[in-house]
């Protein structure tokens, strides 16, 4: 599946078809991350049921140091 993650084009294995599986794939399931799919912010409770499709634009953001 072809998707964009944080602006970069990426090819995902076909088995990675939900947001939860995507986070597991990158070992992010224990991290404090926020996911936006096609400019819609997803609550954590939605990660398992949200299906990924070809061409999706995904943002994975987190908190970093700042003032």
């Amino acid at each position: 599946m072809n998707v964009f993650i944080n602006g970069d084009a990426m090819v995902l294995p076909e088995t990675i078809n939900s947001v939860s599986l995507l986070l597991e794939h990158f070992h992010l399931e224990q991290k404090v991350v926020i996911v936006e799919l096609n400019q819609h912010i997803l609550d954590k409770s939605m990660h398992a049921e949200t299906i990924l499709t070809d061409g999706d634009r995904i943002e994975i953001v987190h908190f970093v140091g700042g003032g």
Binding site: I5, H62, V64
Partner: peptide, 18 residues
């Protein structure tokens, strides 16, 4: 205070102060 930024998804092990 914190800022919100894109994560480097290929470096999941990078420590985060939070």
């Amino acid at each position: 205070t914190f800022a919100v930024r894109r994560m480097n998804i290929f470096e999941a092990n990078q420590p985060n102060f939070l």
